[in-house]
Design a protein around this nucleic acid. Structure first.
Length: 479
RNA sequence: UCCUCCUUAGCUCAGUUGGUUAGAGCAUCUGACUGUUAAUCAGAGGGUCCUAAGUUCAAGUCUUAGAGGAGGAGCCA
């Protein structure tokens, strides 16, 4: 971008200097002789005030200065006479770079509903809210890479197209170049995938974990940060068909090391955002407060920045599934049958109402649940000696639910093979995974962190479709 | 996929028991105003009441079906 950004200029200590700013008109006010333009270039949530004297600027130019128009302004940076900003630009030249028809431009200087902006996702970047969200999104991405880099991790790009469908993490999107009206058929009359691009059925990845394990068992500490695809018909505020996932995998780590890593990493990222996104967080905090005005006091969330500081400065609660079941069994909502799913016995899968009770009512802080019954978890999780539970861990966050799912992996060849057999995982196809247990197997652990769920927590937004630029979900792939 | 709710002006929404020409705020346009802060003041324009069928003398309002959206649930990150 040419010249100084508005962020740079607003933090200037000099005055009466010549400046050149480029940006988009957020608002325009005026009186008989003078117009005030709020100009924003995306470098910061704050707009710069441009003051235009009608006498010095051509009338046709003045007519083009409407909300949404792109301008180049040359002028002098001066102390503002108005109260709400330190500096403003006294313009002597305004060039319209791009007009915006005021009658047709959908974004107005007023509050828009998130639903409306979601339908105008191509233009919502130009609002304060989404500007703040996507600047923060970048900082969170950067902080994650920073954390792993600082700690000796190696970033691995695991495949996006995969032939393996054994992860069991959900429905997959098929990838094919075969004709959809007239595919080649085999002798049995079924689609002949031998003629497909890869010579076999392929899908978009639902997880890079299995491949990350291969890398970890040589490079030691690795992580993935890539797109992930689930073809589930999920219509909720916390699911996407295309989302980004971070999956660290560490050789020689046991479950305790795994919990330490996840907790330390999350706290690092939150602190990084607190230190580097203050203006945007302040704005989102006020926005949330505004949004929740209509709610009863007990239903309102903790102030955004306080909430982030609280999580960064307090230890997460760690407890076993068995302990959680005991707490839930004896809880008021369970006794009074307020839960839709009453907890009766050990072995029950926890519903989101139970997770919310533990995190939001009982402990009031993030909770790491470990040692789940083996029957409700994946084949690769390490069996405990009790033969009933596995070394799984789920991190539950207030307002979001499960943000991390991970485990210590089963490194013992015989037990892994037995588990795969029990759960109908095709051993032949998975030879490459099994090989790691055959040759120099060691204990290792890892987890998957849902990037957009972390974004929900950090921004205080409540719908996952608002923290990714162009959300993909059932019946929607617009833009 | 299931449950609940919603769909009226560019946006956010009101519209009583079914009853004349469907309203408001903001936005837009026009004008006023000596520096505004989502400026203010005055005026104007702007409607396929989501779509289709039905009930009725009469439907924005009632019924049925469909489409789209939101929230919750399940699946999960």
């Amino acid at each position: 971008m040419k010249g100084k950004t508005i962020k740079d200029i607003l933090s200037s200590t000099e005055e009466n200097i010549e400046v050149e700013v480029r940006g988009w008109v957020r608002n325009r006010r005026g009186s008989k002789n003078v117009a005030f333009i709020a100009l924003n270039d995306g470098s910061t949530i704050n707009s710069i005030q441009v003051v235009v004297d009608f006498a010095s600027i051509n009338e046709s130019v003045m007519e083009g200065i409407t909300v949404g128009a792109a301008l180049l302004v040359r002028g002098k940076l001066v102390k503002s006479q108005g109260g709400q900003q330190n500096f403003e630009v006294a313009a002597y030249q305004v060039i319209i770079l791009g007009l915006a028809d005021a009658e047709k431009y959908p974004i107005q200087p007023k509050k828009h509903s998130l639903e409306f902006l979601r339908e105008n996702a191509h233009l919502r970047f130009r609002t304060n809210t989404f500007g703040a969200i996507f600047r923060i999104r970048h900082k969170v991405i950067f902080a994650i890479h920073n954390y792993f880099n600082n700690n000796g991790f190696c970033n691995i790009h695991t495949p996006i197209i995969t032939a393996s469908d054994a992860e069991g993490a959900g429905e997959m999107f098929r990838v094919t170049t075969l004709s959809d009206t007239n595919p080649p058929l085999n002798d049995e009359g079924k689609v002949n995938y031998k003629d497909d691009f890869f010579g076999r059925p392929t899908n978009l990845t639902v997880s890079g974990q299995l491949e990350a394990e291969l890398a970890a068992l040589a490079l030691g500490k690795v992580y993935t940060f890539g797109p992930t695809f689930r073809a589930e018909n999920s219509n909720t505020t916390r699911h996407l068909a295309e989302f980004w996932m971070i999956e660290p995998e560490v050789a020689f780590n046991d479950l305790n090391d795994n919990m330490d890593l996840a907790e330390e990493m999350l706290k690092y990222v939150i602190n990084y955002v607190l230190e580097n996104c203050k203006d945007d967080l302040d704005f989102l905090s006020k926005r949330q407060e505004e949004e929740e005005k209509g709610k009863k006091e007990e239903d309102r969330s903790m102030e955004l920045i306080k909430k982030l500081q609280f999580v960064a400065n307090n230890d997460f609660v760690r407890l076993t599934y068995t302990e959680a079941i005991e707490i839930l069994k004896n809880s008021n909502p369970n006794k009074k049958k307020k839960f839709d799913y009453i907890i009766e016995s050990w072995g029950a899968d926890l519903q989101s109402e139970h997770e919310r009770y533990l995190v939001e009512k009982h402990f009031k802080k993030p909770v790491i649940l470990i040692d789940y019954p083996k029957d409700i978890k994946a084949f690769y999780m390490r069996a405990n000696d009790d033969n009933k539970t596995v070394r799984a861990m789920d991190i539950l966050f207030p307002g979001i639910g499960e943000i991390v799912g991970g485990s210590q992996r089963e490194e013992r060849l015989d037990i892994l093979l037995q588990k795969m057999h029990e759960m109908n995982i095709p051993e032949k196809e998975m030879y490459w995974y099994i090989d790691t247990r055959r040759f120099g197997s060691v204990p290792h652990s890892g987890y998957g962190l849902g990037f957009e769920r972390l974004m929900l927590f950090v921004t205080g937004m409540t719908n996952i479709r608002d923290v990714i630029p162009f959300p993909r979900f059932p019946k929607s792939a617009e833009f």
